[in-house]
């Protein structure tokens, strides 16, 4: 009998430990956790109601009652930033997961299915990708009207092909690998092969890609809201805070700072976290034998 060695698999604990040893990854993790906590706890963390008007206290600089000051309608900016984060996170997580799911399914069908179906799907992916995102977004908003749902729809439609294409390429290469042939040789059907053997091997890199896609979606949401095509007022959004502040930038810089800094920090946070995770999960980037 040959004895087995005792081994520790790449469990969640190891990933976290390695993440904490990477300064940038650690920084990213802190920012992302802070955003999630702020978004979930916005109702309890906010000192004021984000939509409560107080016209007598317009455009106040930061002080002890309003930590980030107030906007042109006298609303507490800190409360609006916290609630805006909730919107940003909600939009990005819902639309990124929807796009990821759809992209995965379509990509695997394209990669594993018959040639004609693959060609048809690639044609659709390319056609959708060939619209400039901003113009496409403006057109859709004009047709459907601005709302959260519209933003999410735009994000799903424009990013699904990105995932779809990556999944298709990965599926094509996995399909030719011996373990997939071995499963087929044992009699496994397409659904079993895709669900049990293809999907688990491409989901890791894809999740990392998705985490780096989150800030992009947040900027799309903020951008559209900034243009007045996104979240309807008075619902707070980082984009609309920025837009409001932009109109009064000669009176006070605080609303612009309060709306802009979270966007920058969130982008950095997700990007650093995504890159650190990619380094951890991609064995080709590991130095140690």
């Amino acid at each position: 009998m040959v004895q087995s060695r005792s081994v520790s698999a790449g469990s969640g604990g190891t990933v976290l430990r390695r993440l904490l040893t990477d300064p940038l990854g650690c920084f990213g993790l802190v920012l992302v956790v802070a955003l999630v906590v702020a978004a979930i706890g916005a109702d309890w963390l906010s000192p004021w109601t984000p939509t409560a008007l107080n016209v007598r206290q317009r455009l106040l600089p930061p002080d002890m009652t309003h930590l980030l000051g107030t906007d042109h309608l006298g609303r507490d900016i800190l409360s609006r930033v916290l609630h805006g984060g909730r919107i940003a996170l909600y939009v990005s997580i819902v639309s990124v997961s929807a796009a990821l799911t759809l992209g995965c399914v379509l990509g695997m069908i394209a990669g594993y299915g018959p040639r004609w179906l693959e060609n048809a799907l690639i044609l659709v992916f390319d056609a959708v990708r060939s619209f400039p995102t901003v113009l496409f977004a403006l057109a859709v908003v004009t047709l459907v009207g601005p709302s959260l749902t519209t933003i999410m729809l735009i994000v799903v439609v424009t990013t699904t092909p990105i995932y779809g294409r990556i999944v298709r390429v990965q599926t094509l290469s996995l399909k030719a690998q011996e373990f997939v042939l071995a499963e087929r040789a044992m009699g496994a059907g397409p659904i079993r092969v895709l669900a049990h053997h293809v999907l688990p091997n491409l989901i890791g890199p894809l999740l990392i890609l998705a985490s780096m896609e989150v800030p992009v979606v947040i900027t799309i949401e903020s951008g559209l809201s900034f243009l007045g095509l996104g979240v309807r007022p008075p619902t707070p959004s980082w984009g609309s805070i920025l837009n409001d502040g932009y109109n009064f930038i000669r009176d006070t810089p605080w609303p612009v700072i309060a709306g802009g800094v979270p966007i920058v920090l969130t982008t950095l946070g997700f990007t650093f976290l995504g890159e650190a995770l990619r380094d951890i999960f991609d064995p080709r980037l590991q130095r140690e034998p």
Binding site: E178, F179, G187
Partner: peptide, 22 residues
């Protein structure tokens, strides 16, 4: 499927023919 039940197959690459996440 019935045929594949009665024929066992071993592939060239001993490690790569095993599904890596299982």
């Amino acid at each position: 499927r019935p045929l594949r039940r009665d024929i066992g197959m071993m592939f060239q690459d001993p490690v790569a023919s095993l599904s890596p996440r299982l």
